[in-house]
Amino acid sequence: MRLAADDWARGTAPRMESFRATQHMITNLRISFDGENQATCVAYVRASHHLPTAPVTATKRCTGTARTTSSGPRTAGGSPGSS
């Protein structure tokens, strides 16, 4: 699934308020350039979200694309892979 960054932030913000704390570790970044103004990054993301009752941890492989425009860099969204 691909999502625009603003749409993702709008949908995520209400859930983020329920966490006591979060931690995100991003490793093994692999960046490929898809032309002069676009690149794709694949990375492993380990995210810990601490609810008031118990912590929740997930590990995912994620892909995101960014491109340069006349108004600056823009992300084209990302897609989580399998855990």
Rank of each mutant, 00 (worst) to 15 (best):
A4Y: 08
R61I: 10
T69N: 01
E17N: 09
P80D: 05
R20D: 07
T22F: 02
A58Y: 06
T27M: 06
R10G: 07
T40Q: 03
S18M: 12
S71F: 00
T22H: 02
V42F: 01
A5M: 07
A39R: 00
T53L: 07
C41L: 15
W8A: 09
P55A: 05
A76K: 07
H50L: 11
K60N: 10
R46H: 11
T75C: 04
G78V: 00
G35L: 02
F19H: 03
T12L: 11
D7N: 06
D6R: 11
V42Y: 01
R30K: 15
T63V: 11
G64A: 11
N37C: 02
H24E: 14
A4V: 02
S71A: 07
T63P: 00
V56W: 11
S70Q: 08
A47M: 06
A39D: 03
R46C: 14
D34H: 08
H50A: 07
A9M: 14
A47G: 13
R15Y: 15
R15W: 15
Q23K: 08
S83K: 04
V45C: 05
P52G: 02
A5D: 10
A21P: 03
T69F: 00
K60V: 13
A39L: 01
S71Q: 09
A58H: 07
R30D: 12
P14Y: 01
S18R: 12
L51V: 14
I31T: 12
L3V: 14
T57Y: 05
P73N: 00
V45I: 10
F33S: 07
A4Q: 12
H49Q: 12
A39E: 01
T27V: 11
